[in-house]
């Protein structure tokens, strides 16, 4: 499954990458001839007194798995709607694979597949009818084989001839994903695709999306499940009140803002003064230390040994995106 447009770039990207968890250093160095998957420049959108988007600018490289995070009302959906041409910005420009979403909307929309956040469906038609028509809107006829493949991958085959009205919420969500993919868009945007979706579907969906990403599709994702973003996205942008407050590789964001934590349970005394200053003690006699890097584990153990203390239990915690998120959202 290769995306229809920008496939050359996408293929290159996919060959560099063996899994979405890895960081792709080469993604950041873009070939000059190659337009970015997304280029957002100085985008502003105002609703009355509310500045929903306040000068947003960033690029997403072809083949990236990109996370767009932020609390409710931060502007994520407005930004996605602006990419899709559903919202017309008051200022700034947006390009999809080099095509301006306003001036060159036909090419831009052909390159983009969007799964909207709200669960919507057309009650007049069956799943297959919906997908055949959606293909037609993109100018594609005889799309049967690809529709079959999407139905198979989203486990919708048994529902192909069912009316969309008769489907469960999870199934309707899958149909929306299928609708976004009928034209093999090189850039796929998913606006909270797993909100209110059961674990099984979430799992299947991510497997499919990861595969599309490996095949070279650029993925932009918004989600409230930060562990999803952490495990899937190689780079993350965080929005807060319409402004961009972070734009970094996931790993950098984690190492810069969040710390490893070391939980200790001691026997034979309490924590020495040199360590007590940076530790939080809990009522159960456990201590929790923040570490700036993993080498510090050795220093801590050494200090404990020197004080004649024994470690009864120890647990090393990894930095979590949730901490970063909370920290950045709390900052004034």
């Amino acid at each position: 499954m290769r995306p229809a447009g920008g496939s050359h770039a996408a293929q290159e990207a996919s060959e560099r990458v063996s899994g979405p968890d890895q960081i792709r250093s080469s993604d950041m160095r873009m070939t000059p001839s190659l337009p970015p998957a997304l280029r957002i420049s100085g985008v502003e959108k105002r609703y009355g007194n509310l500045l929903a988007l306040d000068g947003i600018s960033f690029d997403v490289a072809p083949g990236e798995f990109f996370g767009l995070l932020g609390p409710n009302g931060a502007g994520k959906t407005t930004l996605i709607s602006a990419l899709a041409g559903l919202v017309i910005p008051d200022a700034g420009t947006i390009e999809i694979l080099g095509h301006d979403v306003q001036a060159d909307y036909r090419a831009a929309r052909r390159a983009l597949g969007v799964v909207p956040q709200e669960l919507v469906f057309d009650p007049f038609f069956t799943v297959r009818e919906v997908l055949v028509m959606q293909s037609g809107y993109y100018g594609i006829r005889d799309n049967g084989p690809w529709i079959d493949e999407i139905l198979h991958n989203l486990d919708l085959e048994s529902k192909a001839n069912a009316n969309t009205r008769a489907l469960s919420g999870g199934m309707k969500r899958r149909v929306m994903v299928a609708q976004a993919l009928v034209h093999r868009p090189p850039v796929i945007v998913l606006d909270e695709p797993t909100a209110g979706v059961d674990v099984e579907l979430r799992h299947a969906l991510w497997q499919f999306i990861r595969r599309l990403n490996r095949d070279g599709h650029t993925i932009v994702l918004t989600t409230h499940y930060l562990e999803e973003a952490e495990s899937l996205c190689t780079r993350i942008a965080m929005l807060k009140q319409g402004r961009l407050v972070a734009l970094e590789r996931t790993a950098d964001l984690l190492s810069r803002h969040a710390a490893h934590t070391l939980r200790l349970k001691l026997s034979g005394g309490s924590l020495p003064a040199s360590l007590a200053a940076r530790a939080q003690a809990s009522s159960s006699g456990e201590y929790c230390l923040s570490l700036t890097n993993l080498d510090e584990v050795e220093t801590v153990l050494h200090a404990l040994h020197a004080a004649g203390l024994k470690v009864a239990d120890m647990e090393l915690g990894k930095p979590e995106l949730e901490e970063v998120f909370v920290e950045l959202m709390r900052a004034p």
Binding site: R109, P116, Q134, Y137, A180
Partner: peptide, 17 residues
């Protein structure tokens, strides 16, 4: 109907002039 149910979005996303 398309506007109120929201499915008009599937006509606004494609490159229809």
């Amino acid at each position: 109907q398309s506007k109120i149910t929201g499915n008009i979005v599937f006509l606004l996303l494609p490159p229809l002039s």
